[in-house]
Structure formats: C-alpha cells, structure tokens
C-alpha cells in the first residue's frame, strides 16, 4: 500500500516519469519489434486459409488488432480524463493528449483496413454495418475531443474541459455500441473475443493473439515516446529538462 502510494505521487513528477518511461519504452518497443513481424509471418504465410473467405480473411491479422487498440485507446483516454478531473494530475493530461493522436490514427486505420476487407467480402468499400458504424462514431468522438482542445487556448482549461468530455464519451460508448448493434442486428458475429472461446481453429487465432499483444506493445512504446517528448516540450524551462538538453547536445 505504501509503495503504491509513493508510486502514485511519483507519477505526478515529470522528471521521474521522463526517466522511468525510457526503459519501458524500449522494452515495449523490442517486444513489438519481435511480436508484430512474427505474428504477421505466422498469420500471412503459415496459418491455413479460411474455407469460406480463402486468403482474403488474412486481413483480420492487421484489422482486428488495430480495431481492438482503437477502443482500448479511448478507454485509456477516459481513465486519464477521470484521473485528471479527480486528482488534477498533470501527467494525466499529457497521456490524454498523446493517446488521442494515437487512438484517432488507429481508428482511421481500422476503418481503412475494414473497408479493404469489405471490398472482396461484401463487394463494397463501405457498408453501414454495426461495427463499421461504431468505429466511425468512435473516430468522431476522438475528433470532438481534439477539436475542443484546439479551440481552448489556456492549457489548464483545455486539460480540464477535454478530460470532462472524455469521461462523458466513455460513459456513452457502451450505450452507443449497444444501440448501433441493436440497429443492425443482421450482422457477422465478432471475430475474436477475449472472453468467449474463439470459434476459429487455434492455428488461425493464435497468430492473431500474438499480433494483438504485439500491437499493444507497439502502442505502449509509441505512447511513452510521445509522453517523453511532450514532457520535454512542456517543461522546457525547468532545470531537469535543461540538464537533459545539455546531456543530449554534448553527446
């Protein structure tokens, strides 16, 4: 308990975070650099083709991890917003801001790869099915927070307003998802679920699992890298950032 409390307090300290983020960033980066190529080779070349969708089903190996991550990113933004609202932790705002860009790009990516999958499967680039529509709404939720942040000039108010909007969005996401699924019940069941026993054979879903883990590691590495740079940007004038600048410039 005591350790947890010190950790919580330290989270508020930018130099501590800047320092501790570096080994974690490299750890996640190496993990992603191993898992993503391994999963891609396994999924694209070794896993057997689907008996209905043949080889085109392999798009799920890039599509499903990005789609899962796009939603996880919003979950993280919502939690960061909550932490910022309750404890006024400045680091939570940095996390929110950086996860926003990653999450929006992953959502757009999931929409693009989903549309590429839709072309051979449904014969159309865009189908208003439940998951596509939910993803599109998620993208607009990201855009909304981003636009609100852009519109507010004062950093303090910007942080708090976007934190509140993120929490409101997080509460609404399950309702939106449910309503969209209700609206479009004629629909393929979810390809992959952590809770349910997957209906795919193991040789097909194991590479997917590897890729999901790899993409999580990738997101962790990129997020930490972005947080480190943003901390330097925000704390440019402070003594620790100046020391870091001198260290980097002299090497």
């Amino acid at each position: 308990m005591g350790m947890l409390k010190t950790f919580w307090h330290r989270l508020g300290s930018p130099p501590w975070m800047y320092g501790i983020a570096r080994p974690w960033m490299w750890g996640f980066g190496v993990l992603a650099a191993v898992l993503i190529p391994a999963g891609l080779i396994w999924g694209l070349f070794i896993a057997p083709p689907d008996y209905q969708q043949s080889d085109a089903f392999r798009i799920i190996y890039v599509h499903v991890p990005t789609a899962i991550l796009a939603q996880s990113c919003y979950l993280m933004i919502g939690i960061a917003g909550f932490v910022h609202l309750v404890w006024r932790m400045k680091l939570a705002d940095v996390v929110l801001q950086e996860a926003l860009v990653i999450g929006a790009s992953l959502t757009a990516l999931a929409l693009i790869t989903g549309s590429v999958w839709g072309r051979p499967m449904w014969g159309t680039w865009w189908e208003w099915d439940a998951r596509t529509t939910s993803m599109l709404i998620l993208l607009f939720l990201y855009f909304g927070i981003y636009a609100l942040r852009e519109a507010i000039p004062r950093p303090d108010s910007r942080a708090r307003a976007s934190a509140l909007l993120a929490v409101v969005g997080l509460i609404n996401i399950p309702i939106i998802k449910y309503s969209v699924e209700w609206w479009r019940t004629l629909h393929q069941p979810s390809t992959f679920s952590m809770v349910e026993q997957p209906k795919m054979p193991a040789e097909m879903y194991l590479p997917l699992l590897v890729l999901v883990l790899g993409f999580y590691a990738f997101m962790g590495a990129v997020l930490l890298a972005r947080i480190r740079v943003e901390l330097l940007n925000r704390e440019s004038g402070s003594s620790w950032a100046q020391a870091e600048a001198r260290r980097l410039l002299s090497s």
């Binding site: 080889d55 085109a56 798009i59 890039v62 972005r226």
Partner: peptide, 26 residues
Amino acid sequence: MSGYGAYVWLSVLVTVVAIAINIWLP
C-alpha cells in the same frame, strides 16, 4: 494468395505505413 489476396497486401501495406508514421512522429 488466392482470389482477392492482393487486398491483404494492400491492408498490410497501409498498416505498415501507419506504424512507420506513428514511430516517426515522436
């Protein structure tokens, strides 16, 4: 890749480009 396999390569390509951009930005 049989049938529409080239679509797989298209989506892999898009994903790799997106990963590269995400690494390059920070």
